[in-house]
């Protein structure tokens, strides 16, 4: 088990010292390889807080998180020998806004910044920058450009390349596609799927977009008011009961499929996780 949450609670305090429970009693396991997880929940449900526990940016106030064998807990916080950096190399976390991390003069230097912090040689870091810029779908001419003159979508890709260059085992992305146009969004999701498939990494995506959840995820985590209320496959998630209780949006594919089934008075057999599948099935049914 790469990441293991054991009854994790997290309370934070506002400026007046009033406590708020952001996470309550979370127990959860994430494997080192083979997972494609989406983490969903309304704003303020604790999604981002949960993600920040995955690479020890936050220390739980209750319970403990084991990350690649290192125990993170309130009691262990005082231990001076506890090194958090190796954990952050293994679990790469990409923040929502690339502007939070881009700072070097060139894209190449910025991508190389992470690996160098973990003791990778200058030369090796440059090699990785070259490799990763291609993986995120940009070409090497970008390496010498300034990260500040890029479009929003390009900045996102560069920030992801910067984390990938650390060669983490697990990649956690906080709302990676927000604000992108449909083409940019789909292209980026394909990049994540390839990272998962070709580089055999576990990918965790925080998102509000149920279409992403339904089309890509193998596993969904649903947060609600600090609690983990669902941990399972996306196909079972969107039952009428769950949709109502957890105020979920139904993915377009499922919504349209259900409407058509009802309209035509038919039942479409099998799963239709993407547009192509759904259209083929409808075609079959109508011919």
């Amino acid at each position: 088990m790469a990441i293991k949450f054991e009854r994790v609670g997290y309370e934070y305090q506002d400026i007046d010292g009033k406590g708020y429970l952001a996470l309550a009693d979370i127990t959860l396991n994430i494997n080192k390889t083979g997972e494609f997880i989406t983490l969903i929940g309304e704003t303020g449900s604790g999604k981002s807080t949960l993600a920040q526990h995955m690479n020890a940016l936050l220390t739980p106030t209750e319970g403990r998180v084991h990350i690649f064998g290192v125990k993170i807990s309130r009691e262990g916080k005082k231990d001076k020998n506890l090194k958090l950096n190796p954990i952050r190399q293994k679990v790469g976390l990409v923040f929502q806004f690339p502007e939070y991390q881009l700072f070097e003069e060139t894209v190449g230097n910025d991508i190389a910044f992470g690996p160098k912090n973990f003791g990778v040689s200058e030369k090796e870091a440059e090699e990785r920058a070259k490799k990763m810029i291609n993986i995120v779908g940009l070409d090497e001419s970008y390496l010498s450009r300034s990260p500040f003159n890029l479009s929003g979508g390009e900045k996102k890709r560069v920030s992801i390349a910067g984390i990938l260059a650390m060669e983490p085992d697990i990649l956690v992305l906080d709302e990676p596609t927000s604000g992108l146009d449909p083409l940019g969004r789909n292209a980026l999701l394909k990049v994540f799927y390839e990272i998962h498939q070709k580089l055999d990494k576990t990918v965790v995506i925080i998102t509000h977009d149920m279409n992403t959840v339904y089309e890509y995820a193998k596993r969904v985590l649903v947060m609600r008011e600090g609690n983990l209320v669902y941990d399972g496959a996306p196909t079972q998630l969107f039952s009428r009961k769950n949709v109502k209780n957890w105020n979920l949006d139904v993915p377009d594919i499922l919504k349209v499929r259900r409407a058509i089934e009802e309209k035509l008075g038919i039942t479409i057999e099998g799963e239709t996780r993407n547009k192509a599948d759904l259209m083929a099935k409808i075609g079959e049914a109508l011919r």
Partner: peptide
């Protein structure tokens, strides 16, 4: 708030 988030984002990239 922003400064705090930037610190976390850079900490994620190994800035100690």
């Amino acid at each position: 708030d922003e400064a705090n988030k930037i610190m976390l984002a850079q900490a994620s990239r190994g800035v100690d």
